[in-house]
Every structure is written in C-alpha cells, then in structure tokens.
Design a protein around this nucleic acid. Sequence first.
DNA 1: ATGGTTGGCTCCCAA
Length: 258
Amino acid sequence: MRIATWNVNSVRSRISRVEALVERHDIDVLALQETKARDDQWPLMGLQAMGYDVATLGFNQWNGVALVSRVGLEDVQRGFSGMPQWGEPLADEARAIGATCGGVRVWSLYVPNGRKIDDPHYVYKLDWLARLRDAAKPWLDADTALVGDWNIAPLDEDVFDMAAYAKDTHVTPPERAAFKAFLDDGYVDVVRPHTPGPGVFTYWDYYRQRFERNRGMRIDFVLGSPSLAGRVTTAFIDRDERAGQGASDHAPVVVDLD
DNA sequence: ATGGTTGGCTCCCAA
C-alpha cells in the first residue's frame, strides 16, 4: 500500500496535477493540505472517475484538508477531539481529517503556520500541537499515520540556512520540542531514514528562485505508530513535482507499506 | 531589515 501527503496549495488550481500524481505513482491514499476549497467547491469528479473516494474538510478560502483513497475511506473524522469548536477565536480553520483506509488510520494534518513568534497564531500553533499530541497517544497501538504539513523544521539540517530563519517560526525550540514530543511518545519519522539530509527538503518558497537553488525546508512528514513504522519499505520525496510552471510550493512525500 | 511570488478574493490577506 502506498500513502502520500502533499500540501497542494489550492486543489482547484492544481487538480490536474493531483490526478497526474496519483496516476504517476500509483498512489492508494493521498492526504492533501491547503486545499483552499470549501467542501462544495471541491473538484471531485476526475478522482472519482479514477476510482477514488474523497473526504474533504474546508469552509473558507484558507487551509483545508482532504483524504483521497481507493482502498476504503471509513470512519471519517473531521477534526480531532481536542480541536477548538467552530466559532471560537482562531477556530475558523480546517486542519485535520482522519479516516481508516485499507486498515490504516490516516490523518491529514495542516499544522498552524504560526506566522511570527509574537503573533497569537504562534501560541495557537503550540497549543494545537499539544492537543493533537494528547489525542494521538491512544492511536499508538494501532496502524496510524500522522501525515501532512507540520510547519516545523525539526533539525538544523532541515533548513537551507539557519541564519536566515533564526528569528522566525518553524525552527524555534518550543516548536521543535512540540515535534519531538511525538517521537518521544513513540511515533517514528518513517521518511527520513530513506531520504537522509542535509539538503533534502519538502518546501521551497516561490520567490527568489528558492527551488532552483535548493534553498528550502523539510517541514512535511509522515509519522508512523510503531506497528506502521515496521511496515514501511521505502519512502521518497517527489522533488520533480515542485519543478516547472504551476507547481505547488511543496513536494509530495510518498511512503510504501508492505 | 527587507523583499520576493503565488492563490483566492476583493480592493489585501495568508503563506
């Protein structure tokens, strides 16, 4: 079984790339982030014609997550139990959707960006991660994959130039501690062993020719529960998807399970 | 310290 995750940066502007991606890599389950589409705006038809079920979560032009699966899409859950209820401050977000696909519990996650260190969204990010961690602990005993855009570069080697990001979010000690907490609990970064750094990234800013110069960050991850991690045979970052006109600013990350 | 680019949508915000 092949699982992939991709921050698509607008599914409506890139649906043809989504369809080409699942076909090119023979993907069974695709988690998407930053779909930027309300549920009623989602371009479902092509994927459905290809035999995929789609579960979406989006209700404004920002954020949005989805799961695309051709191996079942059961027990769909929109948001985890610790998520703020709609209507609360900062809750106009759509950042987590989970489902059981082919026996694996897959969560498509779009961790809050954090914006600036002195922004309320930074506090929200850390709080959101703490609540996700609490929710995810009981899932360690099953085949669980926490996949998506974590908006954290856990190691110095995951940033093209630490000096350039020294005063920014994504690399601060509290964010890195929040990420490491998942690993301490038993989740495993199943992609890194197959794609060792430095210089291996999943995201490159659009401007300043960051991709062409490979000045990016590794912020998209697949964290597996121990039993799921034991099933991983290979993993890769589809760097070519980031090239050319009309690319997302993120590359897809693909994992194979036996 | 700032800027640069992209998508969605509305005269600008988020990333």
